[in-house]
């Protein structure tokens, strides 16, 4: 039982997913507010504050207004923050402080199912946040309708990727304060350098190669394409990358969590 056993994964995991949904609904007003207002703040700040400094952005052979370039990236970063925070801080609290996992593991639920449920839940939350953002972005003209709706399933996939790596960190982190480390060394650089606030064409080749390894870059490319119909990379490449990333870190998450919990 101390090795990862994928054969123990069944649809039973949906019950743990459902447990998280119930708790999310309890504080739904707060949960809804952030994704609705966050893009508005960014767009106002960058639109008003930056418009004097930056005229436009040259991206994939097109000249784009700066806020139009940046808005789809906000969708991707929100997806990242939502899912990563869910399987790091929130999952750690459930595991360590609330002992929710100990309770679940005294039922017919397998550890694998429970961890998969946490990851799928985090992805669901990310997709929900993105759906809410679109409610704001589509009427403002920053995302095409109905094409931008495809950002929702894409956010689910991206959410799986970030939730998987978040869960992996939860499996190895000694204490909750230490999450600062992956956030500072991994999430923040990714947030800044994934073609979010400036296009890759402006940075040196070596930096561009590093960026290609960032899952956020691939997610930003996909959301930008679905929001405004322009992209500089290839959709198949982005999707394959995210799927592989999810599979690898999903497995590592199961492995580290099993080592951590099963004694």
């Amino acid at each position: 039982m101390s090795r990862v056993d994928l054969s123990t994964i069944s649809l039973r995991f949906r019950h743990v997913w459902f447990r998280n949904l119930i708790t999310y609904r309890r504080i739904w007003r707060v949960n809804f507010l952030v994704p609705l207002l966050e893009p508005a703040f960014y767009i106002i700040a960058f639109g008003l504050g930056f418009s004097g400094l930056i005229a436009g952005v040259s991206y994939a052979g097109r000249e784009l207004e700066y806020t139009r370039f940046m808005a789809p990236a906000l969708v991707a970063t929100a997806c990242m923050w939502n899912s990563f925070f869910e399987t790091t801080y929130s999952s750690f609290v459930r595991m360590y402080y609330q002992k929710t996992y100990d309770g679940i593991l005294a039922t017919p639920m397998s550890l694998e199912e429970m961890i998969i449920a946490e990851i799928v839940w985090a992805a669901t939350k990310a997709a929900a946040a993105v759906a809410l953002m679109l409610v704001m972005l589509i009427p403002l003209g920053y995302a095409n309708f109905p094409g931008a709706l495809l950002c929702i399933p894409v956010a689910f996939l991206g959410g799986l990727a970030f939730a998987a790596i978040g869960m992996f960190f939860t499996g190895i982190i000694p204490s909750i304060d230490m999450f600062n480390l992956p956030i500072f060394l991994f999430i923040t650089p990714m947030f800044l350098f994934s073609g979010t606030f400036f296009p890759l064409s402006g940075i040196p080749d070596w930096a561009r190669v590093i960026t290609l390894f960032f899952p956020l870059y691939h997610l930003v490319e996909l959301t930008r394409f679905f929001c405004i119909g322009v992209m500089e990379s290839h959709m198949v490449f982005n999707l394959v990358y995210l799927v592989l990333f999810t599979a690898i870190f999903g497995y590592l998450a199961l492995l580290t969590m099993k080592r951590r919990l099963i004694r």
Binding site: K99, T100, D102, G103, A106
Partner: peptide
């Protein structure tokens, strides 16, 4: 199983 620690769900 009634565990030694309180494993109830405080969110529910």
């Amino acid at each position: 199983v009634c565990q030694q620690d309180n494993t109830l769900d405080p969110d529910l």
